[in-house]
Design a protein around this nucleic acid. Structure first.
Length: 914
RNA sequence: GCGCGCUUAGCUCAGUGGAAGAGCACUUCCUUCACACGGAAGGGGCCGCAGGUUCAAGUCCUGCAGCGCGCACCA
């Protein structure tokens, strides 16, 4: 493979030429280009392989990559790459979203800044949209390029945008169908109005935030039958929004409230407007709250609107769609912003002596999720959708045909689904899918009267006589297009091969914050238009926070730029670090240290392979069972365990466990123990034995690289070729790319038997490493420098082959280990022991016996405590009778082990000088 | 108000019924021919509090407290 030459590692490269540290930049660029050129990510709809598919949650077309994207897309990429290695035909379908309000707001802001307009009306619809499209062309590809940097294996040939002409047709078709079914209707309602964006919003786009405000108590003068104020007689109303009083049309009391019964039917004088308004009785009013009198502002409060409807009160609009007071608010207030008007109204009332008191008051205020400003309840005509396929969608999740991970979100879903309210889908914007509805021009549009059905034309094509019609100016909520994403991206309404092969999709990876916005609606759209669920599993990621637990935001400046991290540490490092700290369903506290850990891990992998290369020779294919050492057998068993653990973690979407197992296996088991132990045969054994050790390394590394590939796609590919493991594989199964190499299988019983991977070998190696640990501890105890060569004596408990002793010698960094079954140590020789035998360090005179005695005493105490703990359990007949046999055996063995430890340590202590 | 999470080593977090774990940070030693983006050895936990179930509880149940997040029209 010529690709390997440039970065240094490879079968033919000379040792000196391999960089000591992994340098990801060139490697990542090279392999991404290779994958794309070779069409590795392109899904074949005609493939006989079983299908695996994911649709990307489309990022905002003009957005840039942030840490949330990194988390989300790394997970999707891991799933996609794992599925390929499992032999599936994989489609990861990418795309972007037009993100109506967000994009329009950004473009408007830019155009204002550039002095090209003050308000979009200055440009007009067509001209303005030209600017948005230009913006989209300029910025739309950025996030796609960034996803490629991250290594995402999306099928870019199928890239979709929610405003693609074909996609727009889907949106129109869906609107028309639902309109004809009567599920989409037009209505005059009190909606959530965003005065900054000047559009209606859905309920889901309103965030209730606890706000410190005030409760103003206002005095409304009572009027007598002749309409004259009764001196010193007032009705007291309390309000959090005094500016709305300019639009009051009544004061309401509870009909059962005896304090006010006699007042019902009389009138009060609305201050400032000097308008008589009635006192009405309505059950809505809670007599126990405040004074029991409520001011009624029909046009600016949903409850008041409902009351006004019941009592046939007029609607006085005093706040306009721009959040400024209208002419109806009166001369002194018209034109003021609602916040300014509040101050002005309070000031005036105070002057008139009509402000009784002001209390601090904490309450929830709806804010626009987009622009952050307080929502204004606003009466307007909008399009609404009565959700389709609700029952099947609810059941699909409740009966786990669609599985949520973690499943607790199913409860949230269920709660929302059983309390659905119609979805306000029209937006007073220009950037988006325009409502496919035309109104007859001859009908003079009177905002106070609703348009008759006969004068509405709804269709995918404009009416045949367009000159007589006028299209609805509004566009549709962005989510009204993204809810079709899983099938509209696959060629629906045609039954395309892609749709046939890959719908329903397998997994969806998204954030729980859009469970209502997107996930629930996609499920309903799936059932309504495809007659089937859109995905089988939904993985909900956590939210990425900074290390102080704060949400990442531009204003806080606590959001690192993933591309800078990639440039600094490599994409693999970013992916691995993120996965390792991202438990299922929990928020992720991101720390750059995690990425550093990822980089260090890649470097470890690089150097472990570099070490193998430095031993020379071709890839060794066959392991000769007769030549396998206990260390070989031990690492093969550890590999087997790692494969099983990783498979189990994949099955449960536990990505942090996958990363942690990879880390533990490769670093703590393979590098720390196996490689160090293997240096013994590599340095001194026969050529055949040496070759066999290399065969074990090649076996383990070639499996390891494949286990790593979904998480670390770049370095695993580089090393896969560099080490020559691709050479033996069929072209389509790893020969071309590790992408298609078969996913490692756990070792079979037959393999374990062939290679002699039994408990005895496993325990021999483990005992060796244990003894090494005990021996190494002496260096610290006795202040012996780590590089000082020492002489040990080993008194083995049984027969011990010379190569095992050589491993001990190497791991202990010993000059020599003298094996002497009959060794009779002089009093005072430090001693440790386990099942392997007794290890002595004859160093009389150099030793701090007090420290050794203290250490051994502590160890003895610990061992005795453990013995006591286990013995207590075993002495309990309840325990021995009820416990499963396996657990009983474990405890008995534990007792024996700790007892042996006690004996060993006692002997070691006895061996110290008194 | 209802619902859902979280509370384990200095920090960030794994660990869902059978001997308290990882990474980082810290201490000591080591530039030994894969790696100082490294190696070795250490120190450090009433597993939030109180009850209960069980032979056995960090793990299951019930309260309580603190923190966080959803949902909810009380002015």
């Amino acid at each position: 493979m010529s690709e390997s030459a440039s970065t240094g590692i490879g079968p033919d490269s000379c040792t000196a030429g391999i960089p000591k540290a992994y340098e990801p930049q060139a490697v990542e660029e090279k392999w991404y280009a290779f994958w794309e050129k070779e069409g590795c990510f392109t899904a074949n709809a005609d493939s006989p392989k079983p299908a695996y598919s994911i649709v990307i949650p489309p990022p905002n077309v003009t957005g840039v990559l942030h840490m949330g994207h990194v988390l989300n897309n790394t997970i999707q990429d891991i799933l996609a790459r794992k599925a390929r290695m499992d032999g599936k035909e994989v489609l990861w379908l990418p795309g972007t979203d037009h993100a109506g309000i967000a994009t329009q707001a950004v473009v408007e802001k830019t155009l204002r800044k550039e002095g090209k307009m003050k308000h979009r009306d200055d440009l007009g619809r067509e001209k303005f949209l030209e600017h948005v499209w230009a913006w989209k062309e300029k910025h739309g590809g950025i996030i796609i390029q960034q996803l490629k940097k991250l290594g995402c294996s999306c099928d870019w040939s199928r890239l979709r945008f929610t405003m693609d002409p074909e996609y727009s047709r889907c949106v129109q078709k869906v609107f028309v169908e639902l309109y004809k079914k009567g599920l989409i209707y037009r209505g005059k309602r009190m909606v959530n109005w965003d005065p900054a964006a000047r559009t209606a919003l859905s309920d889901e786009e309103v965030e209730m935030t606890e706000t410190k405000g005030h409760l103003w108590h206002l005095k409304y003068p009572m009027l007598d039958a002749a309409g004259q104020p009764i001196p010193d007689q007032f009705v007291i109303v309390a309000t959090t929004r005094p500016e709305t009083m300019l639009g009051d049309e009544a004061v309401a009391v509870n009909p059962k409230d005896e304090r006010y019964t006699r007042l019902v039917g009389t009138k009060v004088l609305l201050p400032l407007q000097n308008k008589p308004i009635p006192i009405i009785a309505d059950d809505f009013v809670d007599p126990k709250f405040g004074t029991g009198c409520v001011k009624v502002t029909p046009a600016h409060d949903p409850n008041d609107y409902a009351m006004a409807t019941r009592h046939h009160l007029p609607l006085t609009v005093v706040i306009g769609p721009d959040g400024r007071m209208t002419n109806e608010a009166g001369g002194g207030f018209a034109g003021l912003d609602r916040a300014e008007a509040r101050k002005a109204v309070v000031e005036q009332l105070e002057k008139l002596g009509l402000l009784l008191k002001v209390e601090d008051y904490v309450h929830n205020v709806g804010h626009s999720q987009r622009s952050g400003v307080p929502i204004e309840p606003y009466l307007s005509e909008q399009w609404f959708l009565k959700y389709p396929a609700v029952e099947s969608s609810t059941k699909a999740v409740e009966e786990a045909r669609i599985a949520f991970h973690p499943d607790r979100w199913a409860k949230t879903y269920s709660h929302w689904m059983t309390n659905l309210r119609d979805w306000c889908i029209s937006r007073q914007l220009w950037w988006g899918h325009r409502v496919p509805v035309w109104y007859k021009k001859s009908e003079i549009r009177n905002p106070k009267s609703e348009i008759r059905a006969a004068d509405i034309y709804c269709g995918m094509e404009p009416p045949p006589d367009p000159e007589n019609w006028e299209q609805d100016p509004d566009v549709l909520d962005t989510w009204f297009s993204s809810w079709l994403w899983p099938f509209a991206t696959m060629g629906w309404p045609e039954t395309t091969p892609t749709l046939k092969k890959f719908y329903p999709t397998t997994d969806l990876v998204t954030g729980p914050d859009i469970i209502f916005f997107w996930v629930a609606r996609m499920i309903m759209a799936g059932y309504e238009f495809m007659g089937d669920l859109p995905f089988r599993n939904v993985y909900f990621t956590g939210i990425i926070r900074d290390k102080l637990g704060r949400k990442m935001s531009k204003s806080l400046g606590n959001s690192p730029d993933p591309l800078e991290l990639i440039a600094k540490y490599g994409a693999d490092a970013l992916r691995f670090g993120t996965m390792r700290s991202a438990p299922l369903g929990q928020d992720v506290l991101f720390d750059e240290k995690d990425v550093e850990l990822g980089r260090n891990f890649c470097n470890k992998l690089w150097n472990a392979c570099r070490f193998r290369q430095m031993q020379g020779g071709e890839v060794q294919g066959e392991m000769n069972p007769a030549l396998l050492t206990s260390d070989d057998k031990w690492i093969l068993l550890r590999l087997d365990r790692a494969i099983r653990e990783i498979n189990a973690a994949y099955a449960e979407y536990h990505f942090n466990e996958i990363a942690q197992t990879l880390y533990r296996f490769f670093w703590s088991e393979y590098c720390d123990w196996y490689v160090e132990a293997a240096k013994a045969p590599l340095q001194s054994a026969s050529p055949a034995q040496k070759a066999n050790t290399l065969a074990v390394m090649d076996f383990v590394l070639s499996h390891t690289l494949r286990l790593f590939h979904p998480c670390l796609p770049f370095i695993s590919e580089e090393l896969w070729h560099g080490m020559g493991y691709s050479a033996d594989m069929p072209e389509a199964q790893g020969g071309k790319s590790i992408l298609f190499a078969p996913w490692p299988k756990p070792l079979s019983d037959a393999e374990k038997e062939t290679w002699g991977l039994d408990d005895a070998a496993d325990q021999l190696a483990a005992a060796k490493y244990d003894l090494v640990g005990l021996g190494r501890n002496w260096r610290r105890e006795f202040n012996l420098p780590a590089n000082k060569k020492l002489h040990f004596v080993l008194k083995p408990a049984g027969p011990l082959a010379a190569p095992e002793v050589e491993v001990l010698r190497l791991l202990l960094n010993a000059e020599q280990i003298r094996v002497d079954p009959g060794y009779n140590p002089p009093q005072g020789t430090p001693r440790v022991a386990n099942s392997l035998g007794e290890l002595y360090l004859p160093l009389t005179g150099l030793i701090d016996f007090a420290a050794e005695r203290a250490r051994l005493t502590k160890e003895l105490e610990k061992a005795r405590a453990e013995v006591a703990k286990v013995r207590e359990k075993l002495d309990n007949p309840q325990f021995t009778q009820k416990v499963p046999p396996k657990v009983l055996e474990e405890h008995q063995k534990r007792l024996a082990d700790w007892q042996a430890k006690v004996n060993q340590v006692e002997q070691s202590l006895a061996n110290l000088p008194a």
